[in-house]
Amino acid sequence: MKVGALALCGLLTLAACNKKENTEQSSNAPAESAAPAQAATPIDPATAATINGTVKFDGTAPKQSKIDMSQDPGCKGTNEAENVVVSGGDLANVFVYVKDGLSNRTFDVPKDPVVLDQKGCQYHPHVLGAMAGQTVQIKNDDPTTHNIHPTPKDNREWNESQPPSSPAIEKSFSREEIMLPVKCNQHPWMKMYISVVKNPFYAVTAKDGKYEIKGLPPGDYTLAFVHEKLGEQDQKVTVAAKDTKTVDQSFKAAAE
């Protein structure tokens, strides 16, 4: 009996700790800030450079499979898989960021949130960039309940449901993590990725495969192109003051 009582006490303590952790995470951003904020390294706007380009898909684009949303009448409209979105050879949803070359520079975390919307039982956007500590505002514009469940490797995991017409959920991620998967357990086809970076030099390719990164100080950088299915490719790039450099990239179809 004593052993049973002890086990029960242990379990309740565990539950209490778990609830506390969840409560801490649920507070508004920035909830997970680990280190004290450092003053941002100033960038001279007069010398800032720009990198832009197009990401292409090399090969025959896979057909986007149709999604059957009949299990929830609240999911209206049509929906297609977004794991590889190619239009006329241009590849969308590639996360492009400055992976290396900024040395010890620090950057202010933007006060404005980035917005993730759930509409038509689909995430908008499919790939989202945010700075570590920046607020991610999650909205539900569907007449059904969603749950938002990030499954990170380096940040804290959480899982919250969001009924229709409820207020936006605000969260933040404290550590850098590229292509952090987010899913909805109510609707198993709903998947998206948040890339959390330490600098503001990132972009996501649009349907035309184009991206643009502005305000970069002159220097030598490694630019990373990351796709959820096709992996990562890096390119070295040097930008001078006021430069505008075009850096294109192409991904080959993943080997079967």
């Binding site: 919250e160 449901s161 109510q186 198993p188």
Partner: peptide
């Protein structure tokens, strides 16, 4: 059905 955790 990949429905684990749909009730959080």
């Amino acid at each position: 059905n990949d429905a684990g955790l749909s009730v959080p």
